[in-house]
Nucleic acid binder design. Structure first.
Lengths: 122, 122
DNA sequence: TTCGTTACTTACCAAAAGGTAGGTACTTAC
DNA sequence: GTAAGTACCTACCTTTTGGTAAGTAACGAA
């Protein structure tokens, strides 16, 4: 039958086993957010990301990049050179979410003082 | 001196010890995101949140609510009754971020199939 | 009379996250 | 000749996270 598509139930983040939960976890992971906004700015090599994102270990950065690549948000291009050169950039899908993530991050950076005042007020 | 305000350096999420990192962590925590979007819909009692957010334990929900309250995103109102009744709602600050968080969550819910296709394609 | 409901808190334990260090292979700089 | 840079991977160990269960106080329902 032409046009037959598997229809799965609509996503619902409140449901513990909804696949959207996994995507949410990857995107909002400690380093996932920062990788996304860094790559939204421009292409980065592995070591450039590592230097840019303060506090990431190589292990965590590599792991984060793998899961973001698996989910189709990040594209990895390796050049068969020595020393190795690998470029990371966002896919079209990645660019779409990055917009949302960036706007959250921008809000946070702009409003840290208000949060600090709230903390101090108690 | 009137009008003297402590000027701290602009927030930078890339810097490991920038306070924005802490705020980011709280907001993008596993349960923080879900609490925020739930409270963006309407006021919830503790047990209502617990039932709505699939998979949260009481301990984690309580902990998440405390940190969101400390940061000034959530307001807690307890009524001295037995059995106890406590209402949680967003503060004005909370409503602002919730907009950003909701738009991320909405995007995810709408695009899970694309992510799944990306995963399948490898 | 005993159970369930409410909103937690605390203690204890298991699981997961994440840091550190070392190895690789080859090139360029010193 | 030695050290550094590159992009990782793996093993080991510590830290953090999170789940489970029990306790609380008072009331309404069965």
């Amino acid at each position: 039958m032409a046009g037959l598509a598997k229809r799965n139930p609509p996503a619902d983040v409140y449901a513990a086993q909804c696949p959207s939960r996994g995507v949410l976890d990857h995107l909002t992971s400690r380093w996932g957010v920062l990788v996304l906004v860094a790559l939204a700015e421009e292409m980065h090599r592995f070591s450039a990301l590592r230097r840019k994102i303060g506090g990431v270990s190589e292990k965590m950065l590599a792991q984060t990049l793998v899961t973001l690549e698996e989910d189709g948000f990040v594209e990895r291009t390796a050049y068969p050179e020595v020393p190795p050169r690998v470029e990371y950039r966002l896919t079209p899908l990645g660019r779409e979410v990055a917009v949302k993530v960036e706007s959250l991050v921008d809000w946070i950076e702009a409003n840290v003082p208000r949060v600090q005042r709230a903390r101090a007020a108690r």
